[in-house]
Design a protein around this nucleic acid. Structure first.
Lengths: 245, 245
DNA sequence: CGAAACGTTGAATGGTTTCAACAAGAGTGG
DNA sequence: CCACTCTTGTTGAAACCATTCAACGTTTCG
């Protein structure tokens, strides 16, 4: 899928918050710097690296993670088309985490000075970007709650539902299921569990006819029952129509 | 402690990022709306509430949390003087969490339209506020990593060190310790543990002559050893001097 | 064909929770 | 003033969830 700068996945996402004018869309297009293609597995940014541009993810899947001193890994978030990468660390002095492309990806670089400049030229665009950042943070918070207070089975179910809902928003999935390049190891690192235990829980969910996670595909066998099982409420994804006229 | 709008805890914090001009400080001062006083225990904002101003915390301690369907609670973050409350949810349609003052507090209301307006009038102030939001999110991420991948004892030690470091930045603590209104139940809800287990871990840390958590006071018995024990690296708090001249 | 990545399952271990009981201090009302 | 309650802290024992270790199957790929 190829997009003109005026119809990038990001501009479509921001339109869910505010209807942007042609001028604002132009500022947004200017923000898209050099385009890079990175293949799956090659790290995009390393923890502790000092130079940090942010990126806009044009296509593909990425996960952002932190490595612990003992070598264990915690995946903080999963990004899909139209999401920002590293927006948080543009203004901080240390990029506090790493990015791993889960598939081959295309990203547009965003330079910090350009971003600050764009804020001056298009304040409503700034608000829209802050909205997107807020939504991302709400997802991290929900993730935190999940790891802190949800039982492992509910946690896995909730995670698969959240991903599905996000993908549905960009036309990449529905209540039947979605294609998903994650491995059980990724799930484990994202959910604070061991890969072995994730495997057992997936079997449970499969045997209860709720979801099947297999061969790069998540299949919702009984969507409604899974939503009930996980206590999933998508409100925090804030996906209603535009808030600003 | 009483502050003029031009020397609020927040403006001091933002100065750590960018030296703000008199005009920018004036815009920031205008942002401080009606001041409220709330006593400890009375919830400030309830989960799911639709109207959401943000607040600037002028004095006191607050925790933000989410309640699960099963009644368990996850504390997402602790706020101290100069921190924003609910900045994230200003732009989202549902306030996704609640705030509980841990002490009597004073807050200044911030209205969403005023915030967007201020972005237009002072882009560098906008960048500074986004920096503060980024730093807050970095703390949530670190918190997520802690719950997902740190052993319970290291998690507790890390949390007490992070709080100490944040307080030291605003002159409320040092390597000897700090006053802390949290109960062991708060620690449990913040760290994804049971209160009973928190109690046992605090005993361990006390018996190893690392920290003492008692009577509203955290005392670092051996600060350096505790930092090593917790693997604590304050880089993510991004507390060096101003980045923007 | 061999290696590497991913998935699967069983058994033993251990970290955490839950349940239960009790102690100490603060605040309340009779 | 003194019982009474509520909150917070403390400790032990049993139960449970999740991890670790270990082994093996499958597929992909060079």
């Amino acid at each position: 899928m190829v997009h003109s700068p005026l119809d990038s996945p990001l501009s479509r996402k921001l339109s869910a918050f505010a209807v942007l004018s042609a001028a604002e869309l132009a500022v947004l297009a200017d923000l898209h710097g050099r385009i890079s293609v990175v293949e799956a597995g090659r790290d995009l940014v390393h923890q502790g690296q000092s130079r940090h541009a942010a990126y806009i993810l044009m296509s593909g899947w990425v996960c952002s993670y932190k490595i612990q001193p003992d070598g264990s890994r915690q995946i903080v978030d999963i990004q899909i088309s139209g999401d920002f990468l590293g927006l948080r660390s543009v203004l901080l002095r240390t990029s506090d985490h790493s990015f791993e492309p889960l598939t081959d990806i295309r990203v547009a670089e965003v330079l910090a000075p350009d971003l600050i400049d764009a804020f001056g030229r298009a304040p409503r665009l700034a608000a829209a970007i802050l909205w997107a950042a807020s939504r991302d943070e709400a997802m991290v918070v929900e993730h935190l709650v999940g790891i802190g207070r949800r039982a492992a089975d509910v946690r896995v179910a909730h995670f698969l539902l959240e991903l599905g809902t996000r993908l549905a928003l960009v036309g990449r999935g529905d209540t039947a299921g979605y294609d998903c390049p994650l491995t059980q190891y990724h799930l484990a690192d994202a959910l604070g569990l061991s890969a072995v235990h994730v495997n057992r829980i997936l079997r449970q969910l499969r045997e209860r006819d709720l979801v099947v996670f297999r061969d790069g595909r998540v299949t919702f066998v009984n969507f409604a029952a899974l939503v009930a099982y996980a206590g999933f409420d998508a409100a925090y994804l804030d996906q209603a129509g535009p808030l600003l006229a």
